[in-house]
Amino acid sequence: MSADERRAALVAALTEAGSLTADWAPSVAAVPRHAFLPETIWVDEGDGNAACSRSEEPERWMRLAYADLPVVTQWDDGADDGARVTPTSSASMPTVVVEMLADLDAAPGHRVLEVGTGTGYNAALLTHRLGAGMVSTVEVDGWVTARARTALRGAGFTPEVVCGDGALGWGVRAPYDRIISTVSLRRIPPAWPAQTRPGGVIVSPVSPLLGGGAVVRLTVDGGGVACGRFTRSSAFMMLRQQRYEGAPVDDYLPGEWPGDSAQSWTKLDPGAVGDDWSAQFACALALPDVYYRRSGFGEGGWTWWLFDTAVTSWATVDSVPGESRFEVRQSGPRRLWDEVEAAHDRWESAGRPGCERYGLTVTPAGQTAWLDEPDNPLE
């Protein structure tokens, strides 16, 4: 099957699934996704990310280029040590790409800023529909920027491609009618609403520290406040400037566990929070400064460790298969497990809502998550 035939098949599949709208179908049909992928790609077809070389496996490589799967194109910020620990650049799953473009609702005449150029494929789709003069794309990684610029030009697209800090937006071409991020964030940068016209739209994945993640669609008002709902769950690589690495456990707990912690018991299995995307996301929105680690023990048991970013409080909860109650240890001025349990109770009482009932309000002073309406904040 030729690349053109594969592209046509992808358009048909995305359309049939209801993901690809009529206004974006011509762009997906016209832009060759394979032209934006490097010689070696990594794709998870069910057994973890496996490498595929175009020169060694041309048929498989082309099939994967047009599969409805995410494609990893860089590991560990480009470190050339062969370790391949963390994927740090990719071509997103086509379904996710077109659904986010539908959320963006960009139309001819709109000026658009993309944060996270990646391979350049998404910028090419925007350019095909809106025109090169209406699209700017910012990428923090110099190597990724250069490769995307070359791929875009090779495919006949010339949007403005900038190597820079996407958290700062790109004020040179502001204001924008639309801003779209292809990397996830914990907090929407204040520069984005400030660089968006009144009535303009911002679409971005959001990944709270405690876990879960979803795409938010914000509309900016005349005062620079952005507000809107989450539209769908998501899993994207983090904006490099907002990656978080927690402090060592010894900074929270000098000496041996359980230290000065208070013991209690809970009927809520921490796995019911950490292993349920919607529950985890709801708790994470309510507790934006709490994160977790976990370690296994015994026959399938897990100890869940909770920490606050201020390095003042910690908690552990032991999840033991088959038990009806679970040991809790908490230390510090905050009782972190109690806070998680309260957030989970609120989620349960609200009917176990999915991400679509939650939203964000972003002001120059920060952001607030809410349930159903902005006047019902979670914090």
Rank of each mutant, 00 (worst) to 15 (best):
M1D: 08
R6W: 08
A8H: 08
L14W: 01
G18N: 01
S19D: 11
W24I: 07
W24M: 10
A29C: 03
A30F: 07
P38T: 14
E39L: 04
V43A: 06
N49M: 10
A50M: 01
E57K: 10
E59I: 00
R63L: 07
T86F: 13
M93V: 02
V98A: 00
E99F: 07
A106W: 06
A107W: 11
G109A: 06
G120I: 13
L125C: 09
L126S: 01
G131P: 02
V135D: 01
W143F: 12
A148Q: 04
T150S: 09
V161D: 00
V162R: 07
G169V: 04
I179T: 03
R186M: 03
P190S: 14
P198K: 13
V206H: 11
G213A: 05
G213H: 12
V220A: 04
V225P: 10
V225W: 05
C227P: 07
G228A: 03
F230E: 15
T231C: 04
S234P: 14
E256N: 12
L268W: 03
G271F: 14
V273K: 14
Q280F: 05
C283A: 15
V290A: 11
F297Y: 11
G300S: 13
T303L: 02
T316H: 15
V317I: 15
S319D: 10
G322N: 09
R329Y: 05
D338A: 14
D345K: 09
P353I: 03
R357Q: 00
T361D: 00
V362F: 06
Q367D: 10
P374D: 06
P374M: 02
N376Y: 01
L378K: 05
